[in-house]
Every structure is written in C-alpha cells, then in structure tokens.
C-alpha cells in the first residue's frame, strides 16, 4: 500500500495540472478574500455589522471548484491518456489503487486547502486590522471555521475524485461536480416552506460550508460536514464497485 501511495504521489507531483489547480485554489482564496475585505472596509469602515471571518474566506466557493477539478483530473486524466492500463497492470488490486490515490489526494488537498484558508484569513484580517476590527483565531469558533475552510476544500476535492472515478471522462465529471456543488443549491432554493428549507440545508455545499462559518446558517458545523461527506461517499462507493467490474 505504501509503495502504491509513493507511486501516486510521484504521478501527482509530476504533472503541471496539479500545480495549476492548487495554485488557482490558493490564489483565488487569497485574492477574493483580500478584495472582499477591502470592499467591506471601504463601504462600512471599522464599525459595520459584518462577519470578518466570512468575508476573508469569501474565496472558498472558487477554491472548492479548483480542488474539485483537480480531484476529477487526477483520475480521469489516466483514462483520457490510456495510462490507466499501465497503472492497473502494475497494481491489479484496483481497490488498493483507488485507496492509495484517495489517501495521497486527501493529504495534498488538506495541506494546501488548510494553508490557503489560513493565508486568506490572515490576509483579510490584516486589512481589517487597519480599522481596528480584525478577528482573532483566539475568538470563539474562529479557529474551527478557518480549519473548516481546509476541510471544506478537501471534501470538495474528494467529491471531484469520486465523480472522476465514476464517470472516467474529464468534461463530464467536471460538469457533474459543478452541478452538484453550485447548481444544486440554486435549484433547491426554489423549494419553499419549512420542509423546503430543511431540504435546502442538506444540499451539498449548503451543508458542507457550515464548517467554515463562525455563525452557521443551517445545520450545525460538524453535522453539515458529515452530510457533505455523505454526498461524497455515495458516488465514491459506486465508483469503487464499478472500478472492480469494468474493463480498464
């Protein structure tokens, strides 16, 4: 298993798409966070009623899409090139292959996602500090929300990996993961009434993003993350079953 993980790490670090998507995730988190913070400060000054943590993490939806894209291509790329046959000839135990790829991807996404989340938070707070209104990691729930940013990005990446493994076709998998993360919550918003509102809380990113909020707006933070991971688990399990059955 360790051997296969080392192999997957070599594959992941040796292509440009990894650098590009991770760079895009970090860059978008930072730029959107800083611009958002500057905009809020210029409009409301240091005394408005805003959530400094949320504003500094405003890049999360973009970062999530970048991570999800990387999740898709780390596996669909092997099908696109046909390299999957080289991989599976080397590692005939297909579940071991999928597990190794998932572990390596998770570690990379977690490290980069958490770093990006902290960088965006700190940069945003540096803007607010000019007005004497910066939030601190020592404030209640802030540390959990900033760490939560990294968790949310990682879970989004895993949703991409699951869709990539299931669909095996890059454009199809990317469209699917965007639909799940961005379109489904919009569609769910048309649901009205108490039941409609409850359903909305359980939809993909509506649930998953609660972990990134100091003041959750739906499910409790960890419950929301667990629900999001369930959205990941379903395509992942189907993909694993099909991976064992299908011809490579």
């Amino acid at each position: 298993m360790i051997d296969v993980m080392r192999s997957e790490w070599t594959k992941m670090r040796s292509v440009r798409s990894t650098v590009w998507t991770l760079g895009a995730a970090g860059g978008l988190m930072l730029v959107v966070g800083v611009l958002g913070s500057l905009a809020v400060v210029s409009m409301q000054g240091g005394s408005g009623s805003y959530d400094q943590v949320s504003v500094s993490l405003a890049g999360l939806p973009f970062g999530a899409l970048a991570l999800a894209t990387l999740g898709v291509i780390v596996i669909s790329g092997e099908y696109r090139t046909g390299a999957i046959r080289v991989t599976l000839a080397a590692v005939p135990d297909r579940l071991r292959f999928l597990a190794a790829k998932t572990v390596v991807f998770t570690v990379v996404a977690l490290v980069v996602g958490t770093a990006a989340s902290f960088a965006a938070f700190l940069a945003g707070q540096a803007v607010f500090a000019g007005e004497g209104a910066a939030a601190s990691l020592a404030d209640p729930e802030v540390l959990r929300a900033v760490f939560g940013g990294g968790l949310y990005l990682t879970a989004s990446g895993l949703l991409g990996l699951a869709c990539g493994a299931l669909i095996r076709h890059t454009p199809g998998a990317i469209v699917t993961v965007i639909a799940l993360i961005m379109v489904l919550p919009v569609l769910a918003a048309v649901l009205t009434g108490e039941t409609g509102r409850r359903i909305q809380e359980y939809v993909t990113s509506n649930a998953g993003s609660q972990i990134t909020k100091v003041h959750p707006t739906g499910l409790a933070p960890w419950t929301g993350l667990a629900v999001y991971l369930l959205w990941v688990a379903v395509p992942f399990v189907v993909a694993a079953v099909l991976l064992r059955r299908r011809d490579a």
Binding site: S17, G77, R85, V86
Partner: peptide, 9 residues
C-alpha cells in the same frame, strides 16, 4: 500494450 498511452506532461 500501447506506447502512446502515457501522460504527455
């Protein structure tokens, strides 16, 4: 099997 089935990058 297929010499071209590799990641070109």
């Amino acid at each position: 099997l297929d010499a071209r089935a590799v990641h070109g990058g």
